[in-house]
Computed example of a mutant assay.
Amino acid sequence: MTMPDVEPADWPGRANQAARSVTQRFGRRLLFLPGTHLAAVRWPSKVLDSLLHPWHYWWQAHYVDCLVDAGRRELGNGATPAARFNGPGSPSAGKLASRLVTGIRLRNAFTFVNSYYDDMAWLALATLRLEALARETRKPGRRRNARIHKTLTLQFDSASTDHLGGGTFWSTKRDFKNTPATAPVALYYARTGQQAKAQRLVDWLNTVLFDQAQGLYVDGARLNAAGEITVENTIYTYNQGPVLGALLELGGEANLARAATLIRAVDKHLTVPAHAVVPGSPPDSRTSILRCDGTGDGGLFTGILCRYLALAAADARLPEGARTTAGELVTATAGAFWAGRRTQGGPVFSIHAAQPADATYPPGAGVELSTQLQAWMVLEAAASVQQGPSTN
């Protein structure tokens, strides 16, 4: 019996819907100031909630990254007003991202420096991509981007010390070195031509925080009262992402072999059964998807991992099996988020891809920004896998 042809999913169109949903529900000027943009942490919310609620610097950094993703798709469609994700009468995704960076600085007490090196690393990575987008659209970024990178590089240099044998401190308390800080800092160094620094950080991760039995990276390490190194063995999905990115950016036989190992381990240990077969999926499509980690900061975790799996899926240096697995993990997870969305008034995505949004965000419930950014990131990653290699 011949199976009917399956229409390919329109991942760019779905990513645009997620982009519109997040920017319209959560995005606003900061205190009505022109030239600014910032996301509320919950929806619905009031105007002053951006000042009254806890400040989530790194959520906003990932919002910048998502807007850059949308901007790259606008660029691929000619960078015309008609190509804009939110319609020709709206600012481009790149311009909105630039306003968001301004909003972050103002909300963060007129500086890009804060107490957490991982927060700063995420913003540094996002603004590197924003600067590249500005160059390609012939709209060079202001000197602000160069100042951001100069300022934050000094922060990373001060936090990446020989204590505990290497690695990057998590916070200015300087009592804990972990994968959440070390991995994105390593990736930032690799993307800014500082390969030796990046490789030293990756080597430390491989020596101290790589779990040989599972093939995954654990959380972090600290000195106990006796002066001995103790390791925090919790495994988080998102930590695997920037390590994978750094391995790919550095390249070389050992790093690429470790990247392939990491992809296999993610598939083995960090997946769960999907809640349903996604409508329109081929009959032999995978039924496991990436696990998700709840709300709050955990609401971002799976999206971050998918961003870097999408890069792996397009990297011809990796074995075909690893590339295929990476791409399938992304598209299957994106398909589950899309199939489980709540559609009234624009899509609302579930906290967990393995559960429908009606179960995790029933009508009337407040919706958290991190979880919606996560679904948007996953859909952007699926669009990237579908469209092939692009700037990272």
Rank of each mutant, 00 (worst) to 15 (best):
105 R>G: 14
280 G>L: 09
122 W>E: 02
253 E>Y: 05
216 L>Q: 03
181 A>Y: 02
116 Y>S: 07
335 G>S: 08
205 L>D: 03
366 G>F: 02
11 W>R: 08
113 V>L: 10
392 N>W: 02
27 G>A: 11
30 L>M: 09
17 Q>T: 10
8 P>I: 07
2 T>R: 13
220 G>C: 11
344 Q>D: 15
282 P>F: 08
165 G>Y: 01
55 W>Q: 15
107 R>E: 04
149 H>V: 00
287 T>M: 13
214 Q>I: 12
353 A>V: 11
212 Q>C: 02
259 A>K: 00
281 S>I: 10
334 A>Y: 01
225 A>D: 15
52 L>D: 06
94 G>C: 10
25 R>H: 05
230 T>I: 15
374 Q>P: 05
287 T>F: 11
210 F>D: 07
29 R>K: 14
209 L>I: 10
51 L>E: 15
137 T>M: 07
121 A>V: 07
315 D>A: 09
378 V>M: 07
162 D>W: 00
267 D>K: 11
103 G>I: 11
118 D>V: 00
215 G>N: 02
234 T>R: 13
134 A>G: 15
268 K>Y: 00
243 V>C: 02
115 S>M: 01
120 M>D: 09
360 T>V: 07
77 N>L: 10
220 G>S: 11
380 E>I: 06
155 Q>S: 10
217 Y>L: 01
33 L>N: 07
212 Q>D: 08
319 P>A: 08
343 T>W: 01
359 A>Y: 04
324 T>E: 09
331 T>F: 00
181 A>V: 04
164 L>M: 11
67 L>V: 10
241 G>W: 00
78 G>M: 00
50 S>I: 15
351 I>D: 08
271 T>Y: 03
347 P>M: 11
312 A>V: 03
360 T>M: 03
213 A>W: 12
77 N>Y: 01
175 D>R: 09
314 A>T: 13
77 N>R: 14
73 R>V: 11
357 A>S: 14
358 D>G: 14
111 T>R: 04
345 G>W: 02
88 P>F: 08
259 A>H: 00
173 K>W: 00
18 A>R: 02
46 K>Y: 04
30 L>V: 13
126 A>G: 06
95 K>Q: 12
180 P>C: 02
388 G>C: 14
356 P>Q: 12
182 T>D: 06
78 G>F: 09
245 G>S: 06
75 L>E: 15
135 R>N: 11
159 A>V: 07
273 P>G: 12
173 K>A: 09
246 A>E: 01
216 L>F: 04
122 W>V: 01
252 G>C: 09
199 Q>H: 01
45 S>A: 15
163 H>A: 15
388 G>V: 04
51 L>M: 15
136 E>F: 03
57 Y>W: 05
257 A>H: 07
206 N>C: 03
316 A>M: 09
308 Y>F: 08
49 D>W: 04
351 I>C: 08
261 T>V: 01
184 P>H: 05
361 Y>T: 14
169 F>M: 12
310 A>Y: 06
360 T>K: 12
336 A>G: 00
219 D>N: 13
83 A>V: 06
377 M>H: 13
335 G>M: 08
150 K>H: 13
331 T>L: 03
92 S>Y: 05
315 D>N: 03
36 T>P: 05
361 Y>S: 14
